[in-house]
Amino acid sequence: MVGGPEDIRRLARRVALEAEQVREVAAQVSATRSVSWQSATASAFRDSVTLCVLSLHHTAELLDTAARFLLAHASAVQSVVDALPLVGGAVHHGRRRGGDR
């Protein structure tokens, strides 16, 4: 089954929304660094949380990229759809010309 351009744009919006949600999660995860305990264990915890936050932001960018690719795909499909009447008209015109002969 091939989706129409609007279906694909809807998928793109869903993916873009996921990117925003991942950024919100990143902010929540980042807040756990506020543990005030001064110790080697707490420092290691904060370092690990920092790595998680960086990774989450990277994932959000990947989702943004995927959303953009989906929109590009929707545009490409839209172009195909827009071109169909022209192609159909040309084929019909050709057939008529062939029949005339």
Binding site: M1, V2, L11, F69, A72, A76, V80
Partner: peptide, 14 residues
Amino acid sequence: DPGLAGVAPAVVTA
């Protein structure tokens, strides 16, 4: 999603 399947001219973007 099955709607992502590409049609011939849009197979690259898909």
